[in-house]
Each structure stands twice: as structure tokens, then as C-alpha cells.
């Protein structure tokens, strides 16, 4: 795709990049948590423990995983289905990646398809080999907080219910994405077009980058300019150079005593002698 990363300029790539499409499809199903791919098992395990801990958190987590399913299928459909939306130039250059890239993709796809079988929960007739394998690692933690690292106490029927809800949510999200991006062929608005407020907020990542920029980066830069441009030279160096200037000024005064004019020296000596005499004989005078 000549370094293009914008899905708005893609579409219909299934024909041109079949291996990439197939591996991407497998990865999407896995990450969306649809059985029997790997994502389902790991997600199920996490959701189950969360439910045991707090059902509200579980609801939030299911909503989150539903969104994952939606944006992944949205990405899949926008990229690979429909017709190509890029330039003729780009279309001309479309080609499948070399083997050095497709082989790793295939390996990873196999793992994300079959990787889940190392941890089949007991509710589905497995022995959760992975959980038993990892168990010794948590020994110490379990001794400190037994309630957080124990086995699950949920009945199998509750587990089935939880699985059903999460899989159902993922499938619903899939369907919504399908309707929006395959049936209705909608494409995200091009750059610069005015977006509804909520979309705009989300598109700009809740303005968190801008928030950081304004709260931390800019003040830091301003402070740096101030410290270097003002404080360093007009406060500290002024004092440092002031010491030097004070010495010079003082030496300017003292220098007048060393003019080499003998008359002035004798005059100063006489005054000094008079002062000394007065000091010595102050008892007489007062």
C-alpha cells in the first residue's frame, strides 16, 4: 500500500492480499472473544473472576469487550471488503507481502486460532492445563492473600450464563459493524469535515495530548526560557558580576592612595601621626 495507513483509502483488499486477509480475519475473531479461538478462553477466564469479585465491574468489562469486537470488525470490513478507495497509482501497486512477512502471520494466526486449547475450563469438560501449570508461581501470593488467588467458586450454570452473555455481546457488535460498514457501505468522514461533538471528542482522543501539552509541556518550556533568559543572567550573574564590580569600585577608591605623589604621602603621614598622638594623649585632652 506504499505506506498508506488510512483505512479511508483502503477497501476491497481481500482480493489483492488474500493471506493477509485470512490471517487478519482469524486474529479479529480471536480478539473479539468468539469461541473456539484463543481470545475466548482467556477473556472468559478473566471475566469469570471479575464477576466473582464484582458484577458491576463485569458489566463494564463486557461493554469493553463488546467495543473491542465492534472496532475490530469495523477495521476488518473497512480494510478488506467493499471496493478499493485509494488512488489508481496505489491500486496499480497492490500486492501480497513476501513470504518473510506472510509466514510469521500464518504462525501467529494458527496460535490465535488454536492457542486457547491449553486452558479449557472445567465447565467445558477441560482440565485447565495452563492454570495448573502456572499455579506454583502464585504460591507466595496465595499465602499472603488467599481470597484473591483461590479457585473459582461459581457453579457451572453461572459460568455458562457468563460465557453466553459475553459471546452474545461480541456477536451483536459483529452484526452492527457488518450492517454499518458492509451493507450500508459507510466510510468515516474525511479529514477536516465537521464532526458531531461526541465524535469530535473521541476523534481527538479526549484531547488528552492537548491537556498534557498545555498543562505540562508549555509551562515547562516557558519556565526554562524564564530561568535561562531572565533568572540566570539578571539575578544570579548580576550578583556574581556585582561582586567583581564592587571590588573594582573599591580598588578605584584605594588606587588614589597610590598616585606616587610624595606630597600627598607626607600629608597623609602627618595626619596619621596627629591622629595617633591625639589617640594616645586623649586622657590629657579630655
Amino acid at each position: 500500500m506504499s505506506n498508506e495507513q488510512d483505512v479511508r483509502s483502503m477497501g476491497g483488499l481481500r482480493k489483492y492480499l488474500p493471506v493477509t486477509f485470512l490471517t487478519f480475519l482469524i486474529a479479529t475473531i480471536a480478539i473479539a472473544g468468539i469461541p473456539p479461538f484463543a481470545g475466548f478462553f482467556s477473556k472468559d477466564e478473566i471475566l469469570m473472576h471479575v464477576y466473582e469479585h464484582s458484577p458491576i465491574m463485569w458489566v463494564l468489562a463486557v461493554i469493553g469487550s463488546m467495543m473491542t469486537s465492534f472496532y475490530m470488525f469495523r477495521l476488518l470490513f473497512l480494510t478488506f471488503s467493499g471496493s478499493f478507495r485509494g488512488t489508481h497509482e496505489q491500486k496499480h501497486h497492490l500486492h501480497e507481502s513476501p513470504a518473510s512477512m506472510t509466514i510469521p502471520l500464518i504462525v501467529l494466526a494458527i496460535l490465535s486460532a488454536a492457542g486457547g486449547f491449553i486452558g479449557i475450563p472445567e465447565a467445558l469438560g477441560g482440565h485447565n492445563w495452563l492454570s495448573n501449570f502456572m499455579s506454583p508461581l502464585y504460591d507466595l501470593s496465595r499465602r499472603v492473600r488467599p481470597e484473591s488467588f483461590g479457585e473459582t467458586h461459581l457453579s457451572h450454570s453461572t459460568e455458562y450464563m457468563l460465557m453466553g452473555v459475553s459471546v452474545g455481546a461480541a456477536l451483536i457488535a459483529l452484526v452492527i459493524a457488518f450492517v454499518l460498514y458492509v451493507s450500508r457501505k459507510s466510510v468515516p468522514a474525511p479529514e477536516g469535515e465537521r464532526l458531531p461533538a461526541l465524535q469530535n471528542l473521541v476523534y481527538n482522543k479526549y484531547y488528552i495530548d492537548e491537556l498534557y501539552n498545555n498543562l505540562i509541556v508549555k509551562p515547562l518550556m516557558l519556565l526554562g526560557d524564564f530561568l535561562y533568559g531572565v533568572f540566570e543572567f539578571f539575578v544570579i550573574d548580576l550578583i556574581v558580576n556585582g561582586v567583581g564590580k564592587a571590588v573594582q569600585a573599591f580598588s578605584g577608591v584605594v588606587r588614589r592612595l597610590q598616585t606616587g605623589a610624595i606630597g600627598f604621602y607626607i600629608f597623609a603621614m602627618v595626619i596619621g601621626i596627629v591622629v595617633l598622638l591625639l589617640f594616645n594623649f586623649r586622657g590629657f585632652i579630655l
Partner: peptide, 10 residues
């Protein structure tokens, strides 16, 4: 802190 902040702007 003073030296680091100034270093950023050099």
C-alpha cells in the same frame, strides 16, 4: 531541577 529545565531549552 533548575539545571535540567534550562538544559531543555538550550
Amino acid at each position: 531541577v533548575y539545571g535540567s529545565i534550562i538544559a531543555i531549552r538550550q
